[in-house]
Computed example of a mutant assay.
Amino acid sequence: MSARDDDMSRASVRLWRWRSNPLRRRIDVVEAWVILAAWVCAIAGGLAAAWVTGSAAAAGYDRARAERRPVSAVVVKRAKSEATTGPTSDRRIRATVRWTGTDGHAHTGRTHVRAGAAPGDPIRVWANARNELTAEPLSPTNAMFQSAMVGLTAAGGAGVVVLVGVQCIQAGLGRRRMRLWADAWEQADRRWGGSVV
């Protein structure tokens, strides 16, 4: 048997529920339709989930960029504790800073600054429209990447939900199929004159 014939034979075995077959039962056709519907739901649902969640995340990141602005501030008081290590591995400490808000008034707040910052050093901080300190918003490139990751995660979650649902349905159909086969063998045994144990 050639490799091509072997591939054709495997494809034929996979599609047996769709072909006319004396051993095929209605439950086999139902299972074939369930599997087809699951593939359609997994693909369409995954794409829809990715689109909706990715778009929502992107809108949130855009809104954060629009609402936050960089402002010049001055370190007022350094914290003597709370040393941390940031993502770039430079030491950061919390300190009290002062800046002038959009309302023209001076505001103070606590934020992370580089460990070497001393009182009087100028720094850049981010504030929202209410003149509250906030985190720096993601850059458009990072926001796009994060939105894509959120969308892919949602698509994967939708696929897992469909997969688990199909597995449960197939398990139920498999049990039903075994009962039907048992009943059919019992009737055949009686027809052939055997005794059912």
Rank of each mutant, 00 (worst) to 15 (best):
A79W: 08
S20C: 01
Q187E: 15
T141N: 00
R68Q: 06
A95K: 01
V13N: 11
A32M: 14
V164W: 13
S55I: 00
R98V: 08
V161E: 01
V71E: 14
P137G: 07
L152Y: 06
A48P: 00
G46P: 04
A32N: 08
I43A: 13
A171M: 11
G120V: 11
T84N: 03
F145N: 04
T108Q: 08
T100A: 09
A83G: 02
R190K: 15
P70V: 02
R175A: 04
G60T: 09
A154R: 04
E67S: 09
G54C: 07
R124P: 00
A127Y: 03
S55K: 07
A171F: 15
A188K: 15
G54T: 06
R98C: 09
S20G: 09
L138T: 01
V125P: 05
G46D: 02
T111E: 06
E132D: 06
E132V: 05
P122W: 03
M1Q: 04
L133D: 00
T100Q: 12
G109M: 10
S72V: 02
V162P: 04
A135T: 07
A188Q: 14
R25I: 00
V196T: 13
W181N: 07
M8E: 13
V150H: 09
A158W: 06
S2H: 01
D7E: 04
V71K: 07
D28N: 13
A3Q: 01
A49Q: 03
A182S: 13
S12M: 09
I35S: 06
S2C: 09
Q146P: 00
A158M: 04
K77D: 02
N21D: 14
V40I: 15
A37S: 13
V74N: 03
G151T: 06
G172N: 06
S147G: 05
R179Q: 12
G159Y: 00
R191V: 13
G120M: 12
T108V: 09
E82W: 06
G104T: 10
R69H: 07
V113A: 09
W16K: 13
G156D: 09
V196Y: 04
A11R: 04
P140K: 10
H105W: 01
A106M: 10
P22F: 05
I123H: 08
G116V: 06
